[in-house]
């Protein structure tokens, strides 16, 4: 049997990884690993991971990596980048960490056009803590804290992250939303986001739509259907802002 090649920047002693079967994190991290390899930045990359399922990536890469606190990865990466601009800093977080508890950091880092890259995995719930409502939970979606379905009258509508980041950032920022169902495109967005940091243009942000069959309580077919039919309808995929050439919608 021929196994698929693993990115050089993956840290093999921690493989196979610890994400649930069917989880999209592994796909996002594979795209990130290949992008790091192709850009040749492994030795100068500092990878910071948030609390939540993102945390399981803390020793995923053969890159210098730091755990932080829930929502606080963005300021830690800002501190590193401000101290050592020659390093490539990647903040990796979930929708809860980025859009809820750490939203003030994401928003202000975007406004300041901090030259860091943030990759945010949107799986419409808090996975690690057992499937509570996230800012990205879809209307009507059942979670542990919305057992009768999310009611926008009570909890508002899902946060559209790349849209708000795009609205806040100025020239030089890169903003995109990809999905684990379109791997090549997702990898291209992540690579662009890193290239944008390498060029020192501005804040770089990629949201990756992802899957959580454990907490969605879905089988393989339902999982993929929720991603492609529900999530991608609500959260449009594409580049929202790119100084690297013409944006792709």
């Amino acid at each position: 049997m021929v196994l698929p090649a693993t990115p050089k920047s993956w840290y093999l002693p921690t493989k196979p990884h610890k994400f649930c079967p069917g989880c999209g994190h592994g796909i996002v991290l594979k795209a990130l690993g290949e992008a790091i390899d192709e850009l040749g930045i492994q030795d100068k990359t500092v990878f910071g991971c948030d609390i939540g399922c993102s945390l399981l990536s803390w020793n995923f890469f053969a890159c210098d990596s730091i755990q932080t606190h829930h929502g606080r990865t963005t300021p830690v990466m800002v501190g590193i980048k401000r101290a050592r601009p020659e390093l490539i800093t990647i903040g990796y977080m979930g929708d809860g960490g980025g859009y809820s508890i750490g939203s003030q950091h994401l928003l202000n880092a975007a406004v300041r056009n901090e030259k860091i890259t943030v990759i945010l995995v949107n799986n419409t719930n808090y996975g690690m803590t057992g499937g509570q409502m996230a800012p990205t939970t879809l209307p009507g979606q059942k979670t542990e804290t919305t057992p009768y379905g999310r009611d926008p009258e009570i909890t508002g509508y899902p946060t559209k992250g790349p849209e708000f980041v795009a609205a806040l950032t100025s020239d030089g920022a890169y903003v995109a939303r990809g999905t684990v169902s379109k791997y090549k495109q997702l990898k291209r967005f992540i690579k662009n986001a890193l290239q944008n940091q390498i060029e020192g243009n501005g804040f770089s942000f990629v949201e990756a739509l992802s899957t959580c069959p454990t907490n969605w309580r879905t089988n393989a077919q339902q999982t993929w259907s929720f991603l492609e039919d529900e999530m991608e309808k609500y959260f449009p995929v594409g580049e929202f802002k790119s100084p690297l050439g013409k944006g792709e919608k």
């Binding site: 910071g48 606190h69 300021p75 830690v76 990466m77 501190g79 590193i80 101290a83």
Partner: peptide, 10 residues
């Protein structure tokens, strides 16, 4: 937290 990052960066 930015101080935490900066001291980790040396």
């Amino acid at each position: 937290f930015t101080v935490c990052g900066a001291v980790q960066a040396g």
